[in-house]
Design a protein around this nucleic acid. Structure first.
Lengths: 193, 193
DNA sequence: ATGATTCTGTAACGTTCGTTACAAAACTCT
DNA sequence: AGAGTTTTGTAACGAACGTTACAGAATCAT
């Protein structure tokens, strides 16, 4: 048994970046060869197909996001934690060398309605954040930080919605003053909590 | 001079639906032939290229949206008008036969970062709604309906952001209870006004 | 070292892609 | 009616697509 000359996880990370940047349809096998520095044979041998590699990339994308989401279960006032999460999105959108945006959002719009297996991953990725928000807000309600009569589920969905909206606006308002725009959105959204 | 056997506007409407449903990359000329019931020759003769036809489709998409945006300049309390706008998005997302979503949002995520001419149209489409919101809120502030110290610009951007977020969540949460989800988002977002 | 097994590079597969060439058909105008 | 012009259908273009076949290289176990 000859061992692979690469670590599959590294390849998925590399492939993820390519898909992340270009989307699914617009990414060719050749793009993936260049991005992963692997031959087509190795790619197909290890991952089966472009589609399977994309699925794993989309799952991997969410794994990498876990640490950003982790801020929600950290210390400090919940409003501050959520604000930090939102500002993280702002910084991410503005600092990217190539404006990658959010891979989950892109997958949702490009593929979810035509591709059930992708739709399932997208829904799970979204739900990860929604659940983390729900958890954080729920604990904050128990401590009295959030009023007992607030609808925690609605609030977490609202914040999730705000994040995804920022993902669209950031890509859609290229060339404009996106920092101020997103800052405005964050400021208003936080106020509702 | 032989006249065209079709009305170009009708063709753009038909092409728009195809692009709207499938995105740019995943739409082939053959798809457009079928959707428009035209031969390739006529398509290329009339519109030059797939890309140009997409540009015109994306502009046309916004034209059709003008009437939905018009509710903002109608009568009644501004919160009610904005709520109606948001609920219109909910109904649109849920009632579509094929879950079309928002073409502007799709264009933003799929193309804007790699295609300046598309990015310009996307930005203009987004700005159309932002401006209409700003206008409505601005008038509401003059009448005292909205407190004088509110940041109208930030609020209009926030509502725009909410709309685009709903576009993503609606496509990303297929198979879930999207009606309740979007309703929750609308309820929370309106409260901020 | 040898055999068994797996990975990798090369080449090609058949399809589909967006686009163009061209001739015949169709219409307006004089 | 006939000249002039534009549209349309057919066919094909070269390029790129995702995928596969296959032989040789590389590594493990013995």
């Amino acid at each position: 048994m000859r061992p692979k000359a690469f670590d599959p996880d590294d390849i998925i990370d590399a492939a993820m970046k390519v898909f992340w940047q270009r989307g699914y349809s617009a990414t060719s096998i050749q793009d993936l060869e260049e991005g992963t520095e692997l031959g087509r044979s190795s790619i197909y041998n290890a991952f089966g197909s472009k589609h399977e590699l994309y699925e794993r990339s989309l799952r991997r994308y969410q794994e990498l996001k876990a640490e950003k989401i982790a801020v929600l279960s950290g210390p400090g006032p919940v409003r501050e934690r959520i604000r930090r999460l939102l500002m993280d999105v702002v910084d991410e959108e503005l600092s990217e060398e190539k404006g990658l945006g959010c891979m989950t959002a892109s997958a949702a719009l490009e593929l979810a309605s035509h591709d059930p297996s992708i739709a399932a991953i997208v829904a799970q990725n979204l739900n990860d954040l929604e659940s983390a928000l729900y958890e954080a807000l729920s604990r904050a309600r128990e401590t009295g930080e959030i009023a007992a009569d607030r609808d925690i589920r609605a609030l977490s969905r609202f914040i999730l919605n705000t994040v995804q909206g920022m993902r669209v606006l950031s890509k859609g308002y290229l060339g404009h003053d996106r920092r101020q725009l997103l800052q405005d959105v964050v400021d208003v959204a936080i106020k509702v909590l």
